[in-house]
Each structure stands twice: as structure tokens, then as C-alpha cells.
């Protein structure tokens, strides 16, 4: 079983569009398990109409709660909190649940023993069936922490399922950026496919996310999306990859078919046989041998 994660650094470069098309192409050749690791903006399900078979609450951490009746008003909790999460109004101490990091420093420091740590339900994860195979996905509740932990859970459940199903591939749709959810999505993958955009921001953010893959020793390859928006910058990214010996797997064209397919809730390769669909087929043809099969 091989795990492919799709990342981009910058948001909106086309990660989910590429993942959905690759999933459709993989599904014609073997069994795969999909994992949507963009838990604070999960969009893969919008293209795959998942039927949820199992769902569970996710408790990512805990938050401090002060028992006002036992509080002696000493303010120790506020002194030890490094997240400005303890508020004092007229001598009454309360915890701002949104700011609370769940570190329990106040709980252990409180001389009156009146601060409890209560489990914080911060999301939900699901196991679903789609027309292309199994999908493990999740939803982080608004403004919650621990998105990295939830991504790790999604990854773990996808791997367990892939072993059960004897799947050939686990295909992971990552999130933008380089922080904890991206680190959780990339760690232990066999290959990271970076979807890059030929813009100054795209180039800048590609460099950073490649740094994350290298840091965690995951081999990376690059595909350029909407290359014809700026052919000069597209060529610069190709040169950048050549200099670093990074596999450049192709240039996908801008194609209205991407938006049209999204609006129909289909993958580009299901909805169209145009230039983008063909380029995505070409991408899978070069990607497949890299996954060792």
C-alpha cells in the first residue's frame, strides 16, 4: 500500500481538483482509500457525494473550567496562563474557552484545586463510501484547535481501512500552508505531489512546502496547474525543479471544465475529455510508476 499526499503551500492551487481526478483514474485500476486531510475546509466530499457509514466525535484536548464557588480569587491561574485565557471581572475568574490551549498549567497551579480540565469536543470524523472507493474525512468545529491531531486521526483510520481492504493506494488531500495540519498530512507518506500555481505567491509558497516535505524526509514531485495563466512563471518553476532534481510531472492547462465539473459535483475526468482531463490522465501515467506499482 502506497500513500500519496497532495499539497500546495498556497491555497486554491487546485489540490482537490487534482485529487478527485487522480482518484477517479486510480479507481479504474485498483482499490484506493481517500483521506481528506483539509479538516478546516473539507471539500473533497462535495465532488464525491459520500454516504456516511460511520461517524464519531473527536476529542482533541481539554479546556479549563473554574469552579467559582470554590475559587479563592488569588489570581494564580491568570499568572501562569501564557495564552491570556483567564479573564478576571470584578474579582471573578473565568476561562475564555476559545483562547484556552488545554495545557492544564492553571489546573496544576491552583492552590484551591478548583480548576477542572474538561474534554473539548472539537470535531467529528467519518468513514464513508463513494463511487470511487472509501473516504475518511472530518470536520473541525469552528475555531477549534488540534487540527493536526484530527488530521493524524484521519490518516490513521485511512491506513487501517486500506489494510482491511487490501487497497493499493491511500490518496490524501492536504490543506494549504506549512503548519501542524500539513505536517500531520505529509509525515510518513510515500510521495508528496505539490500542485503549484505560476504566480509569485505560488512560487514562494511552493518553496516553503517543499521545505516541509524535505524536513520530514518525504520525497516530492511537482505539477503546475493553470500553467498558461503565466507561461514565464511556469517556466521558472520548471527551471527551479530542474535545479533541485525535483521530478516535474507536467503542466496542467487552465480549463473552464474544472469549474463546470465542480458545479456538477463530478471529477474533471468524469465530466470532460478536454485539455485538462487529458493532462490529468498524463499526470497519472507518470505518477503511477513513481508509486512503485
Amino acid at each position: 500500500m502506497k500513500q500519496l499526499v497532495v499539497l500546495g503551500g498556497k491555497g486554491g492551487t487546485g489540490k482537490t481538483t487534482v485529487v478527485a481526478a487522480l482518484a477517479q483514474l486510480m479507481a479504474t485500476e485498483g482499490r484506493l482509500v481517500l483521506a481528506d486531510a483539509d479538516v478546516d475546509a473539507p471539500n473533497l466530499g462535495l465532488l464525491l457525494a459520500p454516504e456516511v457509514l460511520y461517524g464519531e466525535r473527536f476529542v482533541g484536548g481539554s479546556e479549563a473550567v473554574i469552579d467559582e464557588t470554590a475559587c479563592i480569587g488569588c489570581g494564580t491561574c491568570q499568572d501562569v496562563c501564557r495564552y491570556d485565557a483567564v479573564l478576571a471581572t470584578d474579582g471573578v475568574y473565568t476561562v475564555d474557552a476559545i483562547a484556552c490551549e488545554g495545557c492544564a498549567a492553571c489546573h496544576y497551579a491552583c492552590p484551591a484545586g478548583c480548576i477542572d480540565m474538561e474534554p473539548a469536543e472539537s470535531g467529528e470524523w467519518y468513514r464513508s463510501m463513494t463511487r470511487l472507493g472509501d473516504l475518511v474525512h472530518a470536520r473541525l468545529f469552528a475555531g477549534q484547535e488540534n487540527s493536526g491531531k484530527l488530521v493524524s486521526l484521519v490518516r490513521h483510520q485511512a491506513q487501517v481501512l486500506a489494510q482491511d481492504r487490501d487497497a493499493r493506494w491511500v490518496l490524501i488531500d492536504g490543506s494549504p500552508g506549512i503548519g501542524c495540519p500539513v505536517i500531520a498530512a505529509v509525515t510518513g507518506a510515500d510521495l508528496a505531489l505539490m500542485v503549484a500555481e505560476p504566480t509569485v505567491s505560488g512560487q514562494h509558497d511552493l518553496d516553503r512546502v517543499l521545505g516541509v516535505a524535505a524536513h520530514f524526509r518525504v520525497p516530492a514531485a511537482v505539477v503546475i496547474n493553470k500553467g498558461d495563466i503565466n507561461p514565464g512563471r511556469s517556466a521558472e518553476i520548471e527551471a527551479y525543479c530542474r535545479e533541485r532534481d525535483l521530478p516535474m510531472l507536467g503542466v496542467l492547462p487552465y480549463d473552464d471544465a474544472a469549474m463546470a465539473a465542480m458545479r456538477q459535483g463530478r471529477t474533471v475526468t468524469e465530466a470532460s475529455d478536454g485539455p485538462l482531463a487529458q493532462a490529468l490522465r498524463g499526470l497519472w501515467a507518470v505518477l503511477k510508476p513513481m508509486l512503485g506499482q
Binding site: 478546516d40 475546509a41 484547535e145 494549504p176 495540519p181 459535483g265
Partner: peptide, 29 residues
């Protein structure tokens, strides 16, 4: 981007927020 803790930190203490989206199913969601 997103809706997790970094976004909360950026929004905290603001007087108003402008949310940028695109007219697609992903954008709406």
C-alpha cells in the same frame, strides 16, 4: 485560510471581517 486556531488569532480583536469567497460549491461550503 481555514477556520482553525490561527484564523481565530487573526480575527480576535477585529472591528469587522471581510470574508472573501468564490461562487463555486467549494467557495460556498
Amino acid at each position: 485560510p481555514g477556520t482553525a486556531c490561527p484564523v481565530i488569532e487573526a480575527l480576535r480583536g477585529a472591528d469587522a471581517a471581510l470574508l472573501v469567497t468564490e461562487p463555486t460549491p467549494f467557495g460556498l461550503h
